[in-house]
Design a protein around this nucleic acid. Structure first.
Length: 419
RNA sequence: GGAGAGGUGGCCGAGUUUGGCUUAAGGCGUACGCCUGCUAAGCGUAUGAGAUUCACGUCUCCGAGGGUUCGAAUCCCUCCCUCUCCGCCA
């Protein structure tokens, strides 16, 4: 959610942001409602003030044992008028809030402007692209029956995955390794619910825009989390943190459920794009002046993870059109997967500024005093499992269809070669 | 799922029986000042959030939403959450 002061004073910025993000923008409707709202608000306040005065008079007169019929009559009439105006005011206010939920966050000034991912700017590329003396295979070919589509299909449906044997084991080892990695870097480990309610989804920005992309449990009006960002950020919804609690640095594992309507077709083979994937997510809440530095720190952190996994990667700064609804700035990490000969997105690290904090009412208070301010929130994947699996398998493959593990995983698995 | 008890400012906690000098007491904490060899104590002052306004101010907020009333923290209804006990269950 954007500051109402910005909507009011700088509608052009809001308009430009929406346009650059490819979102509709109903700012003119909002401004019109805002005028009406302020007018109505003024009227109710005058009337309320009068009613408060009358109430005091009645109270006083009754105590004196005097008549107060005139005052009671006026108060009654005033109450009726307040009621009428309030009904109108509520309608206007609800409409405004609905509109506000649909204004996307304003991208930072250094974000490249462009309609889609072709405008993303690659800012770094690290690691050596592996070469083979044979034709490298796709990970789904190497996995073979360890990626049991028949089983997952009959259990849940297409594009859900079921891993067996060493593939399942590799997934578990990877999750553990990631968790330990973050833990040793001084973040707090969190285990979270994998469903979230409507308020939580609205705070982080999935609702209203992405409601249809989520799995919904109608009976309880709960959603399966599309990312751990939702529970992790909502830990602090409606709270006011003392300054010394910042920065909040937390992480946790969660499965991520995405209906991804209309995503079937190419690029959905194997582990590339599935309805449920595993992810370890990092979330931060920082003081506004520190969010840029935090974003940088988080990208460095993820870079080190990929280096330990020995995966070649590149980082792009997303263009406005590829930036998510709630983000102000975002870096994407992609790893090279040798079989598919493609860059696969494995982590997004975003700064949301105060956008989510405003929606979720997450504030902090400076120890020197002053008004509570909104924190800045950030989050980043560290990392998303399926494509990391794909890249590890494709890059580490041998001619005989085995997989050589990077050292950090070999130590944990107890073997250097899987298969 | 059943029964009971609760939800009041950053925290604790009075007020709900009997609706109206509650404009939410009091305490803790915090900030500033006084005092002090230093610290603590003590004393004094200040201290919730939101909306609106250039400002003074005004209005709203006692878990959420409705209702009754001239007037609701207080009465009525619905819902949510927490705790205790019981039931069921991995």
């Amino acid at each position: 959610m954007l500051d109402r002061a910005i909507l009011r004073k700088e509608p052009d910025r809001v308009r430009a942001a929406a346009k650059n993000k490819g979102e509709p923008c109903l700012i003119d409707e909002w401004l019109e409602l805002d005028e009406i709202r302020r007018e109505l608000l003024g009227e109710t306040e005058t009337l309320r003030r009068r009613r408060n005065e009358l109430s005091k008079e009645v109270s006083f007169l009754k105590k004196e044992g005097k008549e107060a019929d005139t005052q009671i009559l006026e108060s009654k009439e005033t109450g009726r008028r307040i009621g009428a105006i309030e009904t109108e005011l509520n309608t206007v206010d609800t409409d405004m809030s609905q509109l506000e939920l649909r204004f996307p966050n304003i991208p930072d000034t250094d974000v490249p402007i462009g309609s889609d991912e072709t405008f993303n700017r690659i800012i770094e590329s690290t690691g050596e692209i592996p070469s083979f003396s044979f034709v490298p295979r796709y990970h789904w070919d190497i996995l073979g029956e360890l990626l049991d589509r028949e089983a997952s299909g009959s259990i849940a449906g297409s594009n859900f995955i079921l891993l067996r044997g060493w593939a399942a084991r590799l997934q578990r080892v990877l999750i553990n390794w990631m968790m330990d990695f973050h833990s040793s870097c001084g973040m707090e480990e969190v285990w979270m619910p994998f469903v979230a309610n409507r308020e939580s989804m609205t705070a982080t920005g999935q609702i209203p825009k992405l409601e249809d992309d989520m799995y919904h449990i109608e009976k309880d009006d709960l959603f399966l989390v599309p990312t751990g960002e939702v529970p992790l950020t909502n830990i602090y919804r409606n709270s006011k943190l003392p300054e010394e609690d910042l920065p909040v640095k937390i992480f946790g594992y969660s499965p991520c459920f995405r209906r991804e309507a209309g995503s079937y077709g190419k690029d959905t083979r194997g582990l590339n794009r599935v309805h449920q994937f595993e992810k370890v997510e990092m979330v931060r809440m920082v003081k506004p002046e520190n969010s840029q530095a935090a974003l940088k720190e988080m990208t460095g952190h993820v870079g080190r993870m990929l280096e330990e996994l020995n995966l070649p990667y590149r980082i792009s700064l997303l263009a406005t059109g590829d930036l998510s609804f709630a983000a102000a700035k975002c870096y994407d990490f992609e790893v090279w997967s040798a079989g598919q000969e493609k860059w696969l997105e494995v982590s997004s690290i975003s700064n949301f500024g105060e956008f989510q904090a405003r929606r979720g009412n997450i504030k902090f208070k400076r120890s020197g005093g002053g008004k509570p301010e909104f924190v800045h929130t950030l989050n980043g994947s560290g990392l998303a499992l399926p494509r990391i699996m794909a890249a590890l398998i494709e890059n580490g493959q041998t001619e005989s269809g085995k997989v050589v593990l990077p050292e950090v995983l070999a130590t944990r698995t107890g073997t250097e070669i899987l298969g």
